[in-house]
């Protein structure tokens, strides 16, 4: 057993060097070469284009907590202490019959209705918390229900907002994988850029 333990320790040291140091370094090297922006976190600047960390206003992959009437709102987020807390990912973990699910949805619906949304048109993804708490997307229906409010707050025609949303709509990959979706941050950046 002693001899085997020594072998185990030496082999662990060798394998640690190989799989714990060399392997991640090689992956990092290749990633930096072939996809530097993606490997760095898909950071974007105010124009929505890839940017270095210093000029970044967010990541195209990570949602932010938008509340103003001028902006498209993302999904509810259950992260603590604030919604869309970037360094504390997680869901609500509420069971389907937990009373807080209904209470949170009711509060959310009230806010949406105050902005003029028709409750019967609000899709379920816009009143439920995501798994990561950082979901960058909402469904196309969830964007559609907010268009009138955004247009009114910005004083621009609804069609212009609709056009910006449409340009940021992504369908299923290969027609079968995933769900149709809209990237909230990228829509808002495009709206702010005035196109």
């Amino acid at each position: 057993m002693l001899r085997q333990t020594i072998t185990a320790a030496r082999l662990l040291a060798a394998l640690t060097l190989l799989t714990g140091v060399v392997y991640p370094l090689v992956v990092t090297g290749i990633a930096r070469l072939v996809a530097p922006a993606a490997a760095a976190g898909s950071l974007v600047d105010r124009t929505g284009r890839p940017a270095p960390p210093a000029a970044a206003v967010g990541s195209a992959l990570i949602g932010q907590d938008f509340r103003g009437d001028r902006y498209l709102w993302g999904r509810p987020s259950a992260t603590a202490p604030r919604p869309y807390q970037g360094d504390a990912s997680g869901g609500s973990n509420l069971g389907p019959l937990h009373p807080d699910i209904t209470a949170a949805a009711e509060a959310r619906l009230a806010t949406l209705a105050a902005g003029g949304a028709a409750i019967a048109a609000v899709p379920v993804d816009l009143v439920t918390a995501s798994a990561s708490g950082l979901d960058p997307h909402i469904s196309p229906a969830a964007a559609a229900v907010q268009i009138a409010r955004i247009a009114r707050a910005r004083g621009i025609p609804e069609d212009r907002v609709r056009e910006v949303v449409r340009r940021h709509m992504v369908g299923r990959t290969l027609g079968i994988l995933g769900e149709p979706r809209v990237n909230v941050l990228l829509v808002n950046l495009a709206l702010d850029a005035g196109d």
């Binding site: 379920v124 993804d125 769900e179």
Partner: peptide
């Protein structure tokens, strides 16, 4: 529908549904 995933979306990401 093509506009939204529907179903039980609590604790799920839109891109996966």
């Amino acid at each position: 529908s093509a506009e939204q995933p529907g179903g039980n979306m609590e604790g799920k990401e839109v891109r996966f549904g």
